[in-house]
């Protein structure tokens, strides 16, 4: 009973934060509401026994990705884009019935399909070890491909965020590129704020 009450509280906070992200005008507030939502989902991961994912959620999402988001919002001058009247308001109002239909569909699917057997959750203590073993045995190839994907994303970001004027310098080697790739938002900030 305690667990259900805790779930309901966390779920309520998560839904409220998600609604605030979508409905509020202020982009920075939206980013902070998304952090709240991610934290709630991490708490739910903990309740499901997924310790590793809860930690990864906090570190990767709420830490790294949201910092990147907030940085981009700061660079791109928030609040200057959605102030005027919406010329396509009637079209956007269609989102309400469409969203309702989607929600109904998903709920029907969920309710119809889960005649769940008794959950046999793995012991939380060996959760991290189990995932690590799985990642480096069964999923070794996808794991390595992920690192290639991240490298490709880094190089692509480097190329996209490079300023037009300073393009004379050659493409750096691996280590140098990684340093410049991680320093991308700082590099692009002054230019945008100059204007």
């Amino acid at each position: 009973m305690m667990a259900r009450a805790a779930f309901l509280v966390i779920a309520g906070i998560a839904v409220a934060a998600a609604l605030a992200l979508v409905l509020r005008r202020n982009t920075v507030h939206g980013a902070l509401f998304l952090v709240v939502n991610l934290g709630c989902v991490a708490a739910l991961y903990l309740m499901l026994g997924a310790i590793f994912l809860a930690a990864a959620q906090i570190i990767v999402y709420a830490g790294a990705i949201m910092v990147l988001f907030v940085f981009a919002i700061m660079v791109l001058i928030p609040g200057k884009e959605e102030t005027g009247p919406d010329p396509r308001r009637t079209w956007r109002l269609l989102a309400a019935p469409l969203g309702g239909a989607l929600l109904l569909e998903l709920i029907l699917l969920v309710v119809g399909r889960t005649a769940a057997p008794a959950p046999t959750g793995a012991a939380p203590s060996d959760n991290v070890a189990a995932i690590g073993r799985l990642l480096f045995t069964d999923y070794l190839l996808p794991f390595e491909l992920t690192s290639v994907l991240l490298l490709a994303a880094m190089v692509g970001v480097l190329l996209l965020a490079r300023s037009r004027e300073g393009s004379a310098e050659p493409q750096g080697a691996g280590p140098e590129a990684s340093v410049r790739g991680s320093a991308k938002p700082q590099g692009s900030e002054p230019e945008a704020s100059l204007r």
Binding site: A50, F52, L53, A56, Q57, V60, Y61, A64, I65, L68, F69, A72, V75, L76, A116, P117, P119, T120, G121, A122, N127, A130, I131, L134, L135, D138, Y139, P142, F143, T146, L149, L150, A152, A153, M154, G156, V157, L160, A161, K184, S188, A192
Partner: peptide
């Protein structure tokens, strides 16, 4: 439901791909 950590490994990959997607997408927006 199954008690195996395969679903969590999949979520780990989703997180990695989402990180790459966010980096590239924000660079495009900038």
């Amino acid at each position: 439901r199954t008690g195996s950590p395969d679903g969590q490994a999949l979520v780990f990959f989703v997180m990695a791909v989402a990180a790459a997607e966010v980096a590239v997408g924000l660079a495009i927006i900038v």
